[in-house]
Amino acid sequence: MPSITREEVAHLARLARIELSDDELDHLAPQLDQIIGLVAQVSDVAAEDIPPTSHALPLSNVMREDVNVPCLTPEQALSGAPAAEEQRFRVPRILSEEA
């Protein structure tokens, strides 16, 4: 019994916005199943009363004064854009026909 099915992997790919081909699914699904088998070992550890650590060092929020600081020019900010128009990122339409 696999810990993750081919259909579940296809679902994850959709959630992660990665268009996977059938061949890739055939290849990646069994590997993910193996990896999940490995990581599931964490459940062997009795840790009910243990607090979680999200960060190695105890830190609180870091604030700075709310003042203007130098930043990128529009040209610099757009310099790596796949498409730009009128000093803005040009993106594909965000609503589909049926929406």
């Binding site: 959709r14 999940i36 594909p92």
Partner: peptide, 30 residues
């Protein structure tokens, strides 16, 4: 649409290991 372009780009632009780990992370956080 943007979502389709995003998915096609990530499919073409990422290699196997990156895809594996993104999907694993998506799974672990779901």
């Amino acid at each position: 649409d943007a979502e389709k372009v995003m998915s096609l780009t990530r499919e073409a632009g990422f290699g196997d290991e990156v895809k594996r780990r993104i999907m694993l992370g998506t799974h672990a956080l779901s």
